[in-house]
């Protein structure tokens, strides 16, 4: 891109939701913005953490409540539910087929594309602590684990700031 790039205005997205449809929305915006040369940061918090979790490792956490939560909330980029019409997993399966037909990238591809475009993934420290998750539980593409203050220090200079 030219050095006169006009789009140095950062984009910040808080991905709070762990559903496929909402994560898709976040990544469509993130990759589009990154393609326009805008620096993009996604702050993954609470259920949204599932999107950048590594596959595997059903039992996580240091007490029974955390373990139960992590078993019931098991998920990663290839295993995310829908916010509507989930139908015990039939909804996501059908949507994935429909997306593949239209050559919309799946979540794993979106993550790879976003990382290649320099989108930064920040896991939220507080949610991780509550849920008993370690930084090793997340994809290697992630940046440092940060807290709300660090998120705000990025967000306050952003022109676009979304909570999904």
């Amino acid at each position: 891109m030219s050095d006169k790039t006009l789009n140095k205005k950062p984009v910040t997205i808080v991905l709070f939701s762990g559903e496929l449809d909402k994560a898709m929305a976040a990544f469509v915006i993130a990759t589009s913005a990154a393609s326009m040369g805008m620096p993009v940061s996604i702050f993954f918090t609470f259920w949204g953490l599932n999107v950048i979790k590594k596959q595997g490792g059903l039992i996580k956490g240091s007490n029974w409540m955390q373990r139960m939560l992590n078993i019931m909330n098991y998920g990663h980029a290839r295993k995310l539910a829908l916010s509507k019409m989930n139908m015990l997993g039939m909804g996501p399966a059908m949507l994935k087929t429909m997306m593949a037909k239209k050559r919309v990238p799946d979540m794993a591809e979106f993550i790879k594309t976003a990382a290649a475009l320099g989108v930064k993934f920040y896991p939220c420290e507080m949610s991780m602590t509550v849920m008993g998750l370690k930084k090793e539980d997340f994809l290697d593409e992630r940046e440092a684990v940060i807290g709300a203050v660090s998120y705000l220090s990025i967000a306050k200079d952003s022109q676009v700031n979304l909570f999904i």
Binding site: M1, S2, V28, S32, S35, M36, K102, R103, T113, L117
Partner: peptide, 21 residues
């Protein structure tokens, strides 16, 4: 061809990275 939003602009951005002004 075959790709829809946002991939055409994403792919264009990636393709242009390897090109000269």
């Amino acid at each position: 061809r075959g790709w829809c939003c946002p991939m055409p602009s994403v792919k264009t951005a990636l393709a242009l990275e390897g090109m000269a002004d």
